[in-house]
Each structure stands twice: as structure tokens, then as C-alpha cells.
Write a protein that binds this DNA or RNA. Sequence first.
DNA 1: CAATCTCTACGAAGATAGTCGATCTGATCG
DNA 2: CGATCAGATCGACTATCTTCGTAGAGATTG
Lengths: 115, 115
Amino acid sequence: MSATADDRHPATGDLRLTKVLAALADPARLAMVRTLATVGESPCVELRQAAGLTISQPTFSHHQRVLREAGVIRERVQGPQRILTVRREDLDACFPGLLAAVIHTAEEFLSSRRT
Amino acid sequence: MSATADDRHPATGDLRLTKVLAALADPARLAMVRTLATVGESPCVELRQAAGLTISQPTFSHHQRVLREAGVIRERVQGPQRILTVRREDLDACFPGLLAAVIHTAEEFLSSRRT
DNA sequence: CAATCTCTACGAAGATAGTCGATCTGATCG
DNA sequence: CGATCAGATCGACTATCTTCGTAGAGATTG
């Protein structure tokens, strides 16, 4: 409906809260988003390492897809690799405060060892 | 570990973000929480109506259980019925801003007809 | 005690999600 | 072109979730 849609990423106006929450309601994906929000942007391989995930590459790719289709992250092709970023502005526009709350809590997770 | 646990409700310190997000990542449960946050408290039957849910009574009871076990709502026995409330303080203590973000968005949902 | 009202608990059936190994595509570099 | 590196896609398997009808448990009312 609005901008940003390119067949792989949902438009900003098409984001749905239940989908975003479902996308974030997984330890692996939460770690991905939290790490991505911290480092700004990152290609898949590096993110998988940086997030400390021990999952297989196809599984990572699956989670990446869930996050992308929910509108949480964006993919940018750069040479042979995909650069991932969090769709901060779009998420803040649709669900004000949500991302901040999730990320802030997620950071506390790191230090308090709760998952 | 901390207070509030009574075998049915998790203690405040035991709340997990992924569980809370998963509990909220369902249209029916989201409607329950949003409505409950608005009316303050309500027994099951009234909440089911107020939230505009067309699900069966056992299904409602199931969702109610998911929310309770995630620590999102609290049940208080009053005569033959259970009074439900949102665990605002506990949620705000563990995940600052999360509940507000979800509820605020949910209210916009009502008027903009997006689900 | 019987009836009723409010919910819980118990399967069961169908759908969805997470995981992986194997394979494929697409870009880059000799 | 051949090799390689970065990911995507394809089944397949398992586990969990959603939903319901039926039945049960606890409180209140006659």
C-alpha cells in the first residue's frame, strides 16, 4: 500500500503487530534483532556469529526470512552478500516504543543471563 | 524465586520476554489483554464478550491460561468466578515500556481496523 | 441435596513452527 | 570457465499450538 515494498519486504503500512510479536517471540530471532540493533548492520555470517547462535545456516536463513517478512529487518544486497539492518523508523512509526522496549530488555538479558 | 508465585502465577522475577511476546502474538490474546487493560478487571464471561471474541469457551480458557502462565494476567477467585487483571506493575518492572507499546498500538488497531 | 452458573481439565484433530541435511542460485575471483 | 564464497530453497521430521466437544470440579442458590 505505502512505500518500501519490493516483493520481499512488506510496506511500512502493512506491518502487523501480531506478526512482529511472533517474529520476536523466539530466542534466536530475538538475539538476531538485539545484536543487529547494537552493531547497526551486518551480513548474515557475521551476525550469526555475533549473536552467538549455534544453529545451522539454513535455520539461520529461515529465521532471517521470518524477521524480514514480519517487517522487522531489511536486507540489502551488496556484492555476494546480504547486509541486514533493523527497520527502526518503520517499526517506530507503526508501533511506537515497542522496539525500544524489546531491545532494552534484551540487553538486560545479556548481563543477567536470563533467556 | 521472588514474590507473587502461587503455583498458578509465575513470580515477577521469573517472567521471560520470549514467553510474554509469544503470549501476546495471538489476535485473541492480544484482544483480551487490550480489553482487560481498558476495563481494568473483568470475569471471563464478560471479557470474552467485551473483547468481541467468537471463540468457544474452552478455547478462551486455553488462551487465558497461556496469558496467565506467561505472567501477563492474574486471576483472582471471587465466588464462583475468576476475576482477571493485567499484571501491569510486574510487566513494567521486568520489561519497561513493552505493555504500553503493545496496548497503545492495539488501541489504534481498533479504530483503523487493522489486525 | 439438586440445579445452575463459572470455569478447568482431558483428549483429539488439524495446522503451524523449528530444525536440519542436501541441493541450488548468484556473485566474485583466478 | 572453474572454483569458491554467501545465502536461499527444498523436503522431511518432530514438536508445539489452536481449536473444539465432552466431561468434571467448585461455589451459589433454591
